[in-house]
Every structure is written in structure tokens, then in C-alpha cells.
């Protein structure tokens, strides 16, 4: 259960800040191509552990929440993980569907989320790259494209394995997930060149794990501030405004005190000094 609570944020807390940014990603994807509609999208990364699976699952959920019919395929036939997120078994899945095209429907699982269907990995083959390069996989995708609006495919990392490059030649586009500060620049350039050699369509880069606090980026700060201002509960806003009112009042008080009082103080002091001076003179004269 732990795994699930971690990963599926868009399902568990759809009003959260993070889910909102996934929605931004969705609109960006929908309007990124003008001529051809993007249907099959492969999600990869340069190195392992950059956040492919979490991003794919959450993207699929957000696409489904918008009313599209979505199929999420676990194309990572080396270390499949999507079945752990959705708590399913890997008895049926992609490899069985590829080897037996007629019964492909029995290998699709309906998830709890409406409009979202899953195709898990199935038994793990000794030769994943050849299986994904086969004509059967191409035919399977062509059949699935007719019934679904979007097909999202998870995949193993690019730099050690060639699976994602093979799949990108068949699919409409590729998204590279990059974890900030984790991978060397040269590795990313190398992996993008791999896609360029097969003339795959790289839609864009998803920057993951960005530490917002350490970077004093004005835009991010402003976005967070506005988000809170718009979405948070009324009480918290009132508290904030009260605090700000107090601070403003303090500032005002200080200002008024300093400006008004200083002049008057000076005058009184002068008067006092003058009076004292006069008194002393009078005293001296009287003596």
C-alpha cells in the first residue's frame, strides 16, 4: 500500500499542487503538435531511477480524468513496476498479447479509475528488444490505436538498453524524463542523439525533482504564492491577512511615531532647555 500512496498523487489528492502541475503538462502535450495528433507516447529517461514510472502513471490518470480513453502499457520488460503501483499481478500482459495477437483483449485489465485501462508486463522474456521490434508489436499498437485516445508506454532507460529507441520508431513521440542534478550532461546528449539517429520525434523534456526552495526563481515563487492565494482555505487566508495587517500597522505606527513625535520632542526639549537656561539666569540674577 505504501508504494501506491507515494506514486498516485493525482488520484489520491487531485486538488494538490503537484496534481495541478501534471494538468499543465497535459495541456502542453495536447497542444504541442499542430498537424498530427499524438496518440502513442513513450516515456523514458537516460539513467535508471529518474522517475519514469511515477510520471507515466500520474500522466495516465490526468489524461483519464479529462475524459479521454487511456491505455497504460508497461513496456519495461526488464524490471516491470506498474503492477506494484496498481496492485495487480503480472500473470497476463504485454508479452502474452504480442505472442498471441488474437486474444489481446484478455490481457487488458480495467483499473479502479474510470477510462483508464492497463496492460502489464506479463512473463519476462529473455530477449525483450527483439520482441518489441517484432511485427506483432506494431500490429498490436495499430489495433489498440483504434479503440483508445491515448496510449502511454513505460520503458527501460535509454543509455544501457535499446528497447525505448526501438519503440520510439513505431510510436508518435518520446518524452525524456530528466532528474535535475542527477545525470551528467554528456549522458543526456548521448541519449538524445540515439533518438535523432532513428529520426524519432522527441516531444520534450520533463524536468523532475527540481528543488524549488534552493533556487530563488521568481516565477516558481510567484506561481506557488498565487496558487495558495487562490486555493487554500479561507481561514488560512484570514490568518495571513491578519498577520500582514498587524505588520502593516506596526510599520505605520513606527512611521507616525518617528515623524510626528520627533519634531514635537525637539521643540519640547528646546523649550525645556530654554526655560532652564532662563531659570538659571534668573537664579543667578536673584543671588
Amino acid at each position: 500500500m505504501k508504494d501506491r500512496f507515494k506514486t498516485l498523487i493525482t488520484f489520491l489528492d487531485p486538488k494538490s499542487n503537484i496534481a495541478e502541475s501534471y494538468r499543465v503538462l497535459r495541456t502542453n502535450l495536447q497542444f504541442s503538435s499542430v498537424d498530427k495528433k499524438l496518440k502513442t507516447i513513450v516515456v523514458t529517461s537516460a539513467a535508471p531511477g529518474e522517475g519514469k514510472t511515477t510520471n507515466v502513471c500520474n500522466m495516465a490518470v490526468t489524461f483519464a480524468q479529462a475524459g479521454n480513453k487511456v491505455l497504460l502499457i508497461d513496456g519495461d520488460l526488464r524490471k516491470p513496476r506498474i503492477h506494484r503501483v496498481f496492485h495487480e499481478t503480472t500473470e497476463k500482459g504485454l508479452t502474452l498479447a504480442i505472442t498471441n495477437l488474437v486474444n489481446y483483449k484478455s490481457n487488458i485489465v480495467h483499473s479502479e479509475i474510470s477510462n483508464l485501462d492497463l496492460m502489464l508486463s506479463g512473463p519476462i522474456p529473455p530477449n525483450p528488444a527483439e520482441l518489441l521490434a517484432s511485427n506483432n508489436f506494431k500490429a498490436l499498437l495499430e489495433i489498440l490505436e483504434k479503440t483508445y485516445d491515448y496510449i502511454l508506454i513505460d520503458s527501460p532507460p535509454v543509455s544501457p538498453f535499446t528497447d525505448a529507441v526501438v519503440m520510439s520508431t513505431i510510436c508518435d513521440g518520446v518524452i525524456l524524463v530528466i532528474s535535475s542534478g542527477m545525470v551528467d550532461k554528456d549522458v543526456i546528449i548521448y541519449s538524445t542523439n540515439l533518438f535523432k539517429t532513428v529520426k524519432a520525434n522527441i516531444i520534450g523534456v520533463l524536468l523532475n525533482n527540481l528543488d524549488v526552495k534552493s533556487r530563488s526563481n521568481y516565477n516558481y515563487y510567484y506561481y506557488n504564492y498565487l496558487y495558495r492565494y487562490y486555493y487554500d482555505n479561507d481561514d488560512s487566508i484570514n490568518k495571513k491577512s491578519k498577520r500582514k495587517q498587524k505588520r502593516a500597522a506596526k510599520k505605520k505606527r513606527k512611521k507616525t511615531y518617528t515623524y510626528g513625535q520627533r519634531g514635537s520632542l525637539d521643540d519640547e526639549l528646546r523649550k525645556k532647555e530654554f526655560m532652564e537656561f532662563l531659570n538659571t539666569k534668573e537664579d543667578e540674577e536673584s543671588k
Binding site: 505472442t99 512473463p123 519476462i124 529473455p126
Partner: peptide, 10 residues
């Protein structure tokens, strides 16, 4: 062994 286990699974 890898191939045999995969084929039995299929």
C-alpha cells in the same frame, strides 16, 4: 534455463 522458464510461463 531462462528460455525454458519463459516458455512455460507463456
Amino acid at each position: 534455463i531462462k528460455e525454458v522458464l519463459y516458455q512455460t510461463r507463456l
